[in-house]
């Protein structure tokens, strides 16, 4: 290894690494924050249209997806605890469960979107011309916000996939698991964003 590369790795700073991750999470939070501002503004401008549009979203799918994400968050947290106790295998299984749950979330999302698209409710879709302004905006925000969230789920799953590899190769161990913790932080953030998206889109009555 040359000296140049050595500088960055001269010492390990877990707290610094975690701090970097948290700061990155803030940027994600404010990325969605910008959309929450839009959501709040338009909901204020079109309260009735939003109510009508939200009726057409499937609360059951939304609820199931919420439980899936919460549980996957739990297993990530547990997997760190397992690694700390040197239960490497258990830790990997828990992460695999997370990937399965995250995958199931995406599958549900896929069916939800395709039902809507099937009914012609999508940007420039045939049904959109019959909708009021507020409903068009609602679905616009719905597609963008849940779509961007789904993108984050995919990225999170890829991160966790890497973590499984790292654990199996012994690069993340009971006394060196900051990468796993950072991946976990990212996954929890994805969960938190959904915690807010869910009532705002599915539970307006």
């Amino acid at each position: 290894m040359n000296n140049e590369a050595a500088i960055g790795h001269a010492h390990r700073d877990d707290l610094g690494s975690k701090m970097g991750m948290w700061l990155f999470l803030f940027t994600e939070l404010l990325l969605f924050g910008g959309m929450f501002i839009l959501y709040a503004s338009y909901r204020y401008m079109y309260p009735d249209n939003f109510k009508v549009a939200a009726m057409h979203l499937d609360t059951l799918i939304g609820s199931v997806n919420t439980i899936l994400l919460l549980t996957s968050s739990l297993t990530v947290a547990l997997s760190i605890a397992a690694l700390q106790r040197k239960q490497t295998r258990f830790s990997v299984y828990l992460l695999m469960f997370t990937i399965v749950a995250g995958g199931a979330f995406l599958v549900n999302k896929y069916f939800e979107w395709s039902t809507k698209i099937h009914h012609g409710i999508y940007p420039k879709g045939p049904e959109m011309a019959n909708l009021s302004d507020g409903e068009v905006i609602f679905y616009g925000l719905y597609y963008v916000m849940t779509g961007l969230h789904a993108l984050h789920v995919i990225v999170g799953l890829v991160f966790i996939g890497f973590m499984i590899v790292f654990i199996l190769r012994g690069k993340q161990t009971f006394d060196n698991y900051q990468k796993l913790e950072n991946a976990g932080l990212y996954w929890h953030l994805v969960d938190i964003i959904w915690i807010f998206l869910f009532p705002l889109f599915y539970l307006i009555h």
Binding site: G33, G34, P123, D133
Partner: peptide
């Protein structure tokens, strides 16, 4: 990030015709 999402939304509107800022779409 606030600018990031705003610019991203312009792209969404231009590419997919999603209604966010366009007064013609409310």
């Amino acid at each position: 990030p606030i600018l990031g999402i705003t610019l991203l939304l312009i792209m969404m509107e231009r590419i997919f015709g999603v209604g966010i800022f366009d007064p013609a779409l409310g």
